[in-house]
């Protein structure tokens, strides 16, 4: 344990953690654009700077470890001015289309500019003017909105380990690029969208089938319905439709997803969905009510059971249904129909 003083109050915190981690635990909010606790500290956005007594320059809280006796100021004038300057510089080189930007409401640059009262980018001069990369079917990359926090590149490298993107050029001309800046479609990108998930601004945004604003949606945490990893996801719901998916933190995927889990949701509200029971009459399906359907099934069960016995029944339960459903299915076959002829495609 270490004793530190933050904003004139004394705290006991675990030694070995960073000032940012300590502040997060203590409920002191510190802005940051480039930090992600799953990634190595990067210290590039400089928004999380704090004043540490005895240090000449401001220190980034994301990359400065707590020491016993440390005295930290997180919101004094000097710190706030530095943050304002960073936001002003970023905003001065950023499009001013917040009204129509897909990220509005969920944009950290917007949030922090609001919090720190940076109403406009006051520096006039050169601005980014890049081509928008629209070549991936699931997401769009607009380099003009990129603030070069490097999260996308680092997630692709450190966590996803695909290394489809990197930083190209340098200085003011730095840009997130695929090899030779040929665009996402030509790269080894696997469309996992893990870069999109960490982008704090509107540079990487999912392509939407349904338009929605962040404040219009509800998030429902659930488990992905594809492979057996069981990734935790959040369904984005607008009205009665699932309009998107975001990865959830925690085990087992900790904020990562693959292309299917992240972007393969549009089957849910697809027009091909079965919406009523269908009974085949003379080789053609006809819509029926549930009661008609149930009656027909029950009739057939008793009819066939009577004539051929329980062993003439077979049921395929499902590796895609819930535990509860599988349980009921086998219970129905075993206890009510009277056969163990229950299996599913575990072997396929």
């Amino acid at each position: 344990m270490a004793e530190i003083t933050i904003n004139a109050k004394k705290y006991q915190v675990n030694s070995g953690i960073t000032i940012l981690e300590a502040c997060n635990r203590l409920g002191i909010s510190i802005p940051t654009l480039c930090h992600d606790d799953r990634l190595e500290p990067y210290a590039a956005c400089r928004l999380c700077v704090v004043e540490v007594k005895g240090k000449k320059n401001l220190q980034t809280s994301c990359s400065t470890k707590i020491r016993d006796g440390m005295v930290v100021e997180t919101h004094n004038k000097r710190v706030i001015n530095a943050r304002k300057e960073v936001l002003d510089l970023l905003f001065s080189n950023h499009p001013e289309d917040c009204l129509t930007c897909e990220k509005a409401g969920g944009c950290k640059l917007q949030d922090y500019c609001y919090e720190y009262g940076v109403e406009e980018g006051t520096y006039v001069g050169e601005k980014k003017d890049y081509h928008i990369d629209d070549s991936n079917p699931f997401y769009t990359y607009d380099p003009n909105k990129c603030i070069l926090c490097g999260k996308c590149v680092r997630v692709c490298d450190e966590l996803q380990c695909t290394n489809a993107i990197g930083l190209g050029n340098r200085g003011f001309d730095s840009k997130v690029v695929t090899p030779f800046d040929l665009g996402l479609a030509t790269s080894n990108c696997v469309s996992c969208g893990n870069c999109v998930a960490v982008c704090p601004v509107g540079a990487l945004t999912p392509k939407k089938k349904e338009k929605y604003r962040t404040w219009e949606i509800r998030k429902v945490k659930t488990t992905c319905s594809y492979c057996g990893v069981g990734c935790q996801i959040e369904l984005l719901v607008k009205g009665d439709k699932v309009v998107g998916v975001e990865p959830a933190r925690g085990t087992p995927n900790d904020g990562l997803l693959c292309v299917k889990g992240r972007f393969g949701y549009s089957f849910i509200n697809h027009s091909d969905r079965l919406k009523a029971p269908l009974i085949k009459r003379n080789g053609e399906f006809e819509e029926a009510t549930w009661e008609e359907a149930y009656d027909l099934i029950i009739d057939k069960i008793s009819e066939i059971k009577e004539e051929y016995g329980s062993e003439s029944f077979a049921g395929l339960t499902s590796a895609r249904c819930t535990n509860e459903e599988n349980y009921l299915f086998q219970k129905m076959f075993r206890a009510l129909i009277g056969t163990n002829n229950v299996d599913h495609c575990a072997r396929l």
Binding site: G228, A319, A346
Partner: peptide, 18 residues
């Protein structure tokens, strides 16, 4: 590594003939 979302659960729940 199980291939489907709940192939483990379907087996656990007795979705097997024996």
């Amino acid at each position: 590594l199980r291939g489907q979302n709940n192939v483990q659960g379907a087996c656990d729940m007795g979705g097997l003939p024996a």
